[in-house]
Design a protein around this nucleic acid. Structure first.
Lengths: 348, 348
DNA sequence: ACCTTCTATAAACACGCGTTTATTCACACG
DNA sequence: CGTGTGAATAAACGCGTGTTTATAGAAGGT
C-alpha cells in the first residue's frame, strides 16, 4: 500500500501533464523544457515512483538481468564457485545497473534440467547468461547461442572452433600456469618433475597436461611417463592416485605439479601415510590458492588464479554486448601467479 | 530467431483457435474440451512456446522470483554465506518453481544502497526477499514489510517485538547451542569455562553470551567475568582477544566456548604462540563446523548448525506466504549438534 | 416451433510503459 | 490577415498475457 504501485499515469495526473511527458522525462528525451522536467522529477522523487520493470520489458526494453548458471557435475558448483566469485559477478553486473539471477543444475544435465535453463531464456527473464562448469559437449548452450541469446562461459575453451558471434569465454591460461610451476621448480634445481592431472574428460584437465608437457620441454626437461598420473579435481582422487603410485614401487620424482590444491591435499596425505615428508622427500606445487592452502601443513606453494578479475571482465563484456556497446574481447584470460610457500625445497 | 519469440497469438493461429483458448489451456481452465486441449498442447510443445514472463506479470501474475540480499557489514557475506547455503536457497526456491535474484550490499547501508534494494522491490522484480546479515536496526526492512512486501531474514531475532504479519525469521537457537557446548565440557569434568563472544552489537553475539551464562547456570557452574572476553566473528579478533588475555597474566580457564570457529582458529594461534597446547592446556569448543575445522590441528570440537535445512524451511515458508498458501511457522530454528573432535580433553 | 440452458469459444479489456503520430498553440513572415 | 514553422505536449498504438464478457451454437424441454 501507500506509494507502492503508483504508476506513470498517476504521476502525470499529479504533475498536470500527460503520461507521455512523464515517460519522456524518465527516458531523457530532448524535447522537454527544463521547468517541465524539473516539476515532473520532483513529483517522481516525492512519490518514490519507479517504473514497473515488466511493463518496460514488454514495451521493448531489456530486463537488465543476467543469469548465472552453475552446472554441478558431481562437484563443480561446490568446489569451484566460491562466494567471492559469485560476488565478483554480482558486483560487476551491479556496477552496470544489471542484476543476477542464479540457477543451479545438479547432477546430470538431463532434458528436464536443460528445459529449465532454456525456459529462463524463453520466458525472457534474462538478457544473457553466464555458465560455470559447462563442459565442451553441452549442445544446449550452442543452441541458445544460435537462437540469438548472449552467453558467456567459464572453465571452457574453444580452441580450434569457429568463433561464435554472441559467445564469450573466460578461462585461465593453463599453459602459462604450468610454465610458472615448472619454472619455479626448475629454479629450485628440480629436474625430475611429475604431474597429477585433472579430469582428462574436461578441457581444463587436458590443457593442464599439455601445458605441463610444453613447460617441461621449454625448460629443457624430459617427461617421464611414469610420473604422469591421471587424476580428477578432488582430494580423494589425488589421494588414490598417489597411493597407487607409491604401491607400484616405482621411483619417485623430486617434485610434482598438481592439477589443483585439493588434489595436492590428497596426495600429501597419501605421502604422509607412506612415511614421506613434504618438502623433505618431495616438493609439491598446487593450483588455485585454496582457502586451506596457506594453513596446510606444510603451507602449500600454489598458483593463484585471479578468477575474480576474470569474471569481472567477462561479466562486463557480456553486459556490453547485450547493450550493443560492443567491446573487442570475446575471450578473457585470468591472471595467474605463483605463491611460494613451504611445500617446495631447493635441492642443492 | 526460430522458435524464439513465438507468442500465444501465433500458437492460436496454428491451432486454429482463439488466443483466449490457448491461454485457458495453459492456465488449466475447466471449460476446455479434452481434444481441444490436447491439440493446443501439442502445438505448444512442438514450438517450445513459453509464455512471456513480463506479460504474465503485467497481467497480474507473480514474478515467481525472490531476492536474496547479502548485507555485508565488514565481513558477513564472505564468511557467512557459503555456496552451500546459497545452493540450499536456490534449490528450495526452484523446487517451488521460483527463481532467485542475488544482490549484495557492501560496506555501510547508505541511502544509495538502500535505494538500490528498495528499487528491486518497487520495480516489481521480485515477490519477496530473503535478507542475510541485516542488523536489527535496519529500518528499511521494516518499511518494506509495512509496504506489504514479504520478507524473511536470517541471523536476526525479534524477541520481544510485536509479530509482524508478513515477516519471517530464521536463526539458530543460540541458547541451545551454548547449552550443548557447556554440557559437553561439563561432562568432561570442566568447571572453569570461559567464552570469547561474538560481536556484541549484533543480536547473534548478545544471544550467544546470554545463552552461555544461562547454560553455565543450568549446569551449576559459576561464571568468572575475567573469562568472558568480548569478541567479534573473525579470526583476527579471536587472536587479539586471546593474546590480550594472556598478556594480562590472569589465570586461564580450563576450557573456552568460542563464538564461532574462525574465532577459535585465532585464539588457538595466540595460545600456541604463548607456548600452550590445545587440548593439553586448554580445551576449545567452536561453532559452525567451518570447512577448516576437521583439518585443523587439533581437529576442532564444534557445533554444527544446520543452516541449509533452516534456509530450506525459510525459503519454503516465504514462497508459501507469497502464494497465500499460508503455513504456520513464521519463525524457523536451525538444528544444532555437537561434533566431538580433538580440541577438548577429559580433565580426570 | 419457441424459449431456455448450457457449452465452447471468440472478442474485448486491462495491465504500465515506450514510442510514434497527431494536435495545439505561439510566433514570424509575407 | 493568411500561411507556414517550430516547439510543446497530448493522444494513440503496440508489447503479450490473463480474465471477463459477449456470442454463437447445440441440446433439451414444453
Amino acid at each position: 500500500m501507500g506509494n507502492i504501485g503508483i504508476n506513470a499515469t498517476e504521476i502525470a495526473k499529479i504533475a498536470g501533464v500527460s503520461r507521455s511527458t512523464v515517460s519522456r522525462v524518465i527516458n531523457n528525451y530532448a524535447n522537454v523544457p527544463p521547468e517541465t522536467r524539473k516539476k515532473v522529477m520532483e513529483i517522481i522523487d516525492q512519490h518514490r515512483y519507479v517504473p514497473n520493470l515488466s511493463a518496460q520489458v514488454l514495451a521493448g526494453k531489456k530486463t537488465r538481468t543476467i543469469g548465472m548458471f552453475m552446472i554441478e557435475k558431481g562437484h563443480v558448483a561446490g568446489d569451484f564457485i566460491s562466494n567471492m566469485l559469485l560476488a565478483s559477478v554480482i558486483e560487476s553486473a551491479s556496477s552496470h545497473g544489471y542484476y543476477v539471477l542464479t540457477h543451479i543444475i545438479r547432477g546430470r544435465c538431463d532434458s528436464d534440467s536443460i528445459r529449465g535453463v532454456k525456459d529462463i531464456f524463453y520466458q525472457r527473464r534474462i538478457d544473457g547468461g553466464l555458465f560455470f562448469g559447462a563442459a565442451d559437449d553441452e549442445p544446449f548452450i550452442e543452441e541458445l547461442v544460435s537462437e540469438g541469446f548472449w552467453v558467456a562461459s567459464v572453465d571452457q575453451s574453444f580452441e580450434g572452433r569457429e568463433e561464435q558471434p554472441n559467445r564469450m569465454v573466460g578461462d585461465l591460461n593453463n599453459e602459462w600456469a604450468m610454465k610458472q610451476a615448472v619454472s619455479h621448480l626448475a629454479a629450485l634445481n628440480h629436474r625430475e618433475i611429475g604431474h597429477i592431472g585433472g579430469d582428462l574428460k574436461r578441457y581444463s584437465g587436458i590443457a593442464k597436461l599439455e601445458g605441463f608437457r610444453k613447460a617441461m620441454s621449454e625448460c629443457g626437461l624430459g617427461v617421464n611417463e611414469d610420473w604422469i598420473l591421471p587424476g580428477g579435481f578432488h582430494e580423494e582422487i589425488g589421494y588414490e592416485a598417489m597411493k597407487g603410485f607409491l604401491a607400484s614401487g616405482k621411483r619417485l620424482p623430486t617434485a610434482i605439479v598438481m592439477a589443483n590444491d585439493s588434489v595436492a591435499f590428497g596426495a600429501v596425505r597419501a605421502l604422509r601415510e607412506h612415511g614421506l615428508d613434504v618438502p623433505r622427500d618431495i616438493s609439491i606445487v598446487g593450483l588455485d590458492d585454496h582457502a586451506l592452502s596457506a594453513r596446510f601443513q606444510p603451507a602449500l606453494t600454489t598458483l593463484r588464479v585471479d578468477f575474480a578479475g576474470m569474471l569481472e571482465q567477462l561479466t562486463t563484456s557480456l553486459v556490453k554486448h547485450i547493450e550493443k556497446k560492443k567491446v573487442g574481447a570475446e575471450k578473457v584470460t585470468a591472471e595467474v601467479h605463483l605463491i611460494a610457500r613451504d611445500s617446495c625445497r631447493n635441492l642443492t
